[in-house]
């Protein structure tokens, strides 16, 4: 029997993997992928809470849908900026972004 706790553990694992990916990756696109994993962990959390605690309502579903939409918009802007930098520098590795003091 799969309970709420299983889903929460799955979500927290996914969140940690995403966070590790976002911190350890050298490539800007890899970092964005890590952030996507973190957001998906949030979605699993929201849907699981909604399904197990308040099955009659849809607040959690709505929240998850909004998270997906906003994440898509965020990544669209992020990729546009990365492409712009790539044209100038021919690189998308974050170590190369060193014009400013980090």
């Amino acid at each position: 029997m799969i309970t709420l706790n299983h889903y929460l553990v799955l979500a927290s694992l996914l969140f940690c993997i995403g966070l590790y990916c976002a911190i350890a990756k050298r490539n800007a696109i890899g970092i964005l992928m890590g952030i996507e994993l973190m957001l998906n962990a949030v979605n699993i959390n929201l849907i699981a809470f909604n399904r197990f605690l308040v099955p009659g309502e849809t607040t959690g579903h709505m929240f998850a849908i909004f998270v997906i939409v906003v994440a898509a918009a965020e990544v669209a802007v992020g990729l546009a900026i990365i492409i712009n930098i790539y044209r100038e520098k021919l690189s998308s590795a974050v170590e190369d972004f060193d014009w400013l003091k980090w």
């Binding site: 966070l19 976002a22 964005l32 952030i35 973190m38 965020e74 992020g78 990365i82 014009w99 400013l100």
Partner: peptide
């Protein structure tokens, strides 16, 4: 551009 990418990565995180 660099400010933009730094802002987007850290802010999204």
């Amino acid at each position: 551009c660099e400010a933009g990418i730094k802002y987007i990565i850290l802010s999204a995180m």
